[in-house]
């Protein structure tokens, strides 16, 4: 496995505010990494450190390697400017040049190429993002989704080792966002270039990532496959950020834990007092007039529903198929059908 990006021990403070604190990460070539975290967690700053748009604080042994090249090394005094790092960048506002046509925008990074090679590459990129007919249009004549694809084509035209995308979908409306997300993921996979996204949208992060990097307070809290982070979060912060979670006080006893639900199986063994994290879809509600759980509220989404159920004074969220009808006050029993995590 070759490395597209390796960043080690990067930090950045703005006065008193610590934006990024000792962050390290690695993206393999062809891999899609997603930095996810709440607003202000430092993820955009980390991206800018990697791109060279912001200098890291000079701390020992901090390093950035893009492909085979070391572009930043605090100990050796290496610090390449952004124009020599060979990363592609896609911005939230796309940052297309308004005075250039689509073709001119895409060709901007190819100024050192021969004329023929440049024209061929622009045609190739236009075909790749399926905008062949729009080469002579200006950015303001394009829809949001088309502008997005031009920005992507422009970033990838010079064949960067990795492309960095800062909240690239947040200016689009919801339906278009979902559609484009799949589109962009597909295009990136086709081209084989590695990518690092930044987003605060967990759904977007989970569905885009090969590797998910959860950030908060300037630190990378956990790295792994989306499924792993969702099902086996390393901390309460990660677990809560990535989806609805029931957090129950309990005692772990090896392969199971005891909590308000009784004994629940654990994903990994643990011992002692713990917070037990159970996803709503790991719970099942069975209507039963003699049950000890009572339905409090329901939120109907269409594809499924969330019901809030009270059990021994504790409110729990349960995800249920949308075919069931539940009414507030209805009694029943709760069962845990999937392993929980003790934190």
């Amino acid at each position: 496995m070759t490395i597209a990006l390796r960043a080690e021990r990067l930090s950045r403070c703005f006065g008193e505010v610590v934006a990024v604190s000792n962050a390290s990460l690695e993206i393999a070539s062809g891999e899609i990494g997603v930095l996810v975290g709440p607003s202000g967690c430092g993820k955009s700053t980390l991206l800018r450190l990697i791109a060279g748009l912001e200098p890291p604080d000079p701390s020992p042994k901090s390093r950035i390697q893009i492909g085979e090249r070391v572009v930043y090394d605090s100990d050796k005094g290496i610090d390449l400017p952004p124009d020599q790092r060979l990363v592609g960048l896609v911005f939230q506002d796309y940052a297309l040049f308004p005075h250039m046509t689509v073709a001119e925008n895409i060709a901007f990074g190819l100024h050192t190429w021969s004329r023929q090679a440049r024209e061929a590459r622009v045609r190739e990129m236009l075909a790749w993002v399926r905008l062949e007919g729009l080469a002579q249009r200006y950015p303001h004549e394009l829809s949001g989704g088309q502008q997005q694809r031009v920005a992507l084509a422009r970033a990838l035209a010079p064949r960067p080792t990795i492309v960095l995308l800062d909240e690239p979908f947040s200016n689009l409306d919801h339906a278009l966002r979902v559609e484009l997300r799949e589109d962009v993921r597909e295009l990136l996979k086709q081209s084989g270039v590695a990518a690092l996204f930044v987003t605060h949208d967990r759904e977007e992060a989970l569905s885009l990532a090969d590797t998910l990097l959860m950030m908060d307070g300037g630190c990378i809290l956990q790295t792994g496959a989306p499924q792993q982070l969702y099902l086996e979060p390393a901390s309460i912060q990660v677990g809560r950020f990535l989806g609805e979670a029931n957090l129950l006080a309990g005692v772990a006893q090896g392969s199971y834990a005891v909590c308000v639900l009784g004994e629940v199986p654990l994903q990994r063994t643990a011992h002692g007092m713990a917070t037990i994290l159970i996803r709503p879809e790991a719970l099942e509600f069975h209507p039963d007039a003699n049950g000890d759980a009572v339905v409090e509220r329901r939120l109907f989404f269409g594809h499924d529903q969330l019901i809030s159920v009270k059990l021994d004074g504790v409110s729990l969220l349960v995800r249920a198929s949308s075919t069931f009808s539940f009414a507030p006050g209805q009694r029943g029993r709760l069962r845990c059908i999937a392993p929980a995590v003790a934190l």
Binding site: L89, F97, T112
Partner: peptide, 21 residues
């Protein structure tokens, strides 16, 4: 926009070219 300048930089343009183009 600031991101426009950053985009130009990341596409390999130095200060002179960013100013000119």
């Amino acid at each position: 926009s600031p991101s426009m300048e950053m985009a130009a930089r990341s596409l390999g343009a130095r200060t002179g070219r960013v100013l000119r183009q």
